[in-house]
Design a protein around this nucleic acid. Structure first.
Lengths: 343, 343
DNA sequence: TCAATTTTTCAAACCGCTTTGGATAGCGCG
DNA sequence: CGCGCTATCCAAAGCGGTTTGAAAAATTGA
């Protein structure tokens, strides 16, 4: 396929050793020859064979992402593409490859074991942690550097993660609605087997407790986040004898569904009913063109991808630095979807 | 990290040669010893080192996907996650890794050259082809097996691709609206620098031409497919002196935006105004829970990912079979968003 | 000028696996 | 008994790089 180091060397009348050192910036090589080697490498479009290099060095210069596909739901997390885009930027700048494994969630353990045993990556990134996620303890045993995007509430031993402050974020959003005079506030949450969803719920409950409001189970929903789900939840909630006057949505797309349910019911968003949603700032799902449509707790998942990748690379370079963590706060952005409670 | 072949061999009192053959199913090894080797490998959790193996065999057992990030739009194609999920299933079943490169679209050429020169993949998958896409001719020169998801209209030389029949799909959808009596039909398309969008437009124009309708430039929009874009396009179109009575949307999310514009204008979807959309069957964007919300041209992008990966693997196994292609038809599914034209 | 350094280069071993080209042993058969 | 086969196994040479240890060349110091 490409030129090999040996060919390049013999073409220059040098030994492979010298050429290798010249290319990798070792000091013990004459400036003139180094320049000659670099030029020759460029014109020959020489790129060292990844496999050979990593076999020799013991490093693969690749990061693995394991994407769980829920066997029951078959859902791919929509957040995933933007996160990958962010992380990918960082990897390619650092000269790392990104290898993806899409695995049904009942085979994840095997997938992790294999990938470690085969030595094809220097580090792993864990997506979509659940409560008490076994993967984390498994990876600790395997001893490969890893980062978790999110956290897993049940896991006691420390590990490296990056997360947004879901709890505070939803507490703040709830408080905001309370300040506007709302007391019947519905939570249209994601799947509460996922860690992030549970934290959001906790934040919501926190704020209610402080306000002295007893949470009403009828007002709390949890499911895979889709537009039809938001719509159905909205419709059913509005039909309650004592319907909510405000909603918290766990994602923009759920908020779309809620909005549809409101308009179906002849209610005006932001006047008759308020909605606050979480906004992952997905590139293909902007919150309005100029003015934000929704009041939202904002946090760019793309930026999260970048930061997580950065941290993972630092962990790969220095595995002994111990667990590193990063908690991102969200911004509460005011949009057209909220207003004072009207009696 | 893991056990090596040599260790496994010496543990068994065998040569590495024999162990290798035993594991790889070569005939010249005693049944009893093979069994012994297999057992030992299992208990030691032995997995051959990928890099060493592929260095020795000359195959990397990995497929590369290059994800272009538009430097101007910074948009990640939402279709991407589901496609990857489909392809990933196939790869992992076949024992292949998937390596992703996220590259700004002005560096794509370099990215392709590098990945080929470094020999880190056996085949490549090209995403989001534009018109006259240079990447295709580049890859033909580089001589690595590759598949394109979609086609590129300007490229003359044959290449391997999988695409949906965008043209017929949108012709059919337009015909359907014409049959319902609509004559003012708007096209709210994706970016027409992308090949798929142009083909959809052609299909739309085909149907109008057959019906003897002169296409009206005011009724044709093209932009990145987002909800706010659909909303704005809908609003502006409905304000025309002679507004459309039917819309073709290029994606579900655009259709959401359209629907909002309609309701804003006090119109009822499916009665006052009809909408047909393309539906990629994304896992997180289902077209309704039971009844389809939208009449749609349906095609699972996840299935497309599976099929494309299948074809690519076959191309990798037998690179001399010449270009292979596959055109998927879409299903026109009836939903609640279309009705007869009312005067 | 010549020994002692310092620079610069190279030969060879190695990373973990596959594969070629024997070697060895067991067997049937004339 | 000895020859030719077949069934099993192995030593060694790669794959394309990096890296160790030593040699050759250039430079320095007295």
């Amino acid at each position: 396929m490409g030129v090999t180091l040996k060919e390049l060397a013999s073409g220059l009348g040098l030994s492979p050793t010298t050429v290798s050192r010249a290319l990798n910036g070792y000091p013990e090589v004459n400036q003139a020859t180094r320049q000659r080697v670099l030029d020759a490498a460029r014109t020959a479009n020489y790129h060292p064979n990844t496999r050979a290099k990593s076999l020799a060095t013991g490093q693969s210069r690749a990061i693995g992402h394991i994407i769980p596909i829920s066997t029951s739901h078959e859902i791919v997390n929509p957040v995933f593409a933007d996160f990958i885009a962010g992380a990918g930027e960082v990897y390619s700048r650092a000269g790392y490859d990104m290898v993806l494994s899409v695995v049904p969630d009942d085979e994840e353990e095997n997938a992790y074991r294999n990938i470690v045993a085969r030595g094809s990556v220097d580090g792993l990134l864990v997506h979509g942690p659940r409560l008490h996620d076994d993967r984390i303890t498994l990876l600790q045993d395997l001893g490969l550097p890893f980062m978790v995007h999110g956290r897993s509430s049940g896991v006691q031993t420390p590990y490296s993660w990056l997360d947004i402050n879901n709890r505070r974020s939803f507490r703040r959003a709830t408080e905001f609605l309370l300040e506007l005079g709302h007391t019947r506030i519905a939570l249209v949450n994601g799947l509460e087997s996922m860690d992030f969803a549970l934290r959001r719920r906790t934040g919501y409950l926190d704020a209610l407790a402080v306000a002295g409001i007893v949470p009403c189970p009828d007002l709390m929903r949890s499911a895979e986040m889709t537009e039809p789900y938001g719509h159905q939840a909205g419709r059913e909630l509005l039909r309650l004898p004592d319907p909510p006057t405000a909603f918290l949505a766990s994602s923009m797309i759920v908020a779309y569904g809620l909005r549809r349910a409101l308009t179906d019911a002849g209610l005006k968003l932001g006047r008759d009913v308020s909605v606050v949603t979480h906004d992952d700032d997905l590139s293909y799902m902007p919150n309005g063109l100029e003015v934000p449509q929704f009041t939202a707790t904002c946090s760019s998942v793309r930026a999260a991808g970048r930061k997580t990748a950065d941290m993972l690379l630092s962990l790969v370079r220095d595995p002994d630095q111990g667990p590193i963590t990063h908690l991102m706060e969200t911004r509460l952005v005011l949009g057209d979807s909220t207003g004072r409670h009207r009696t």
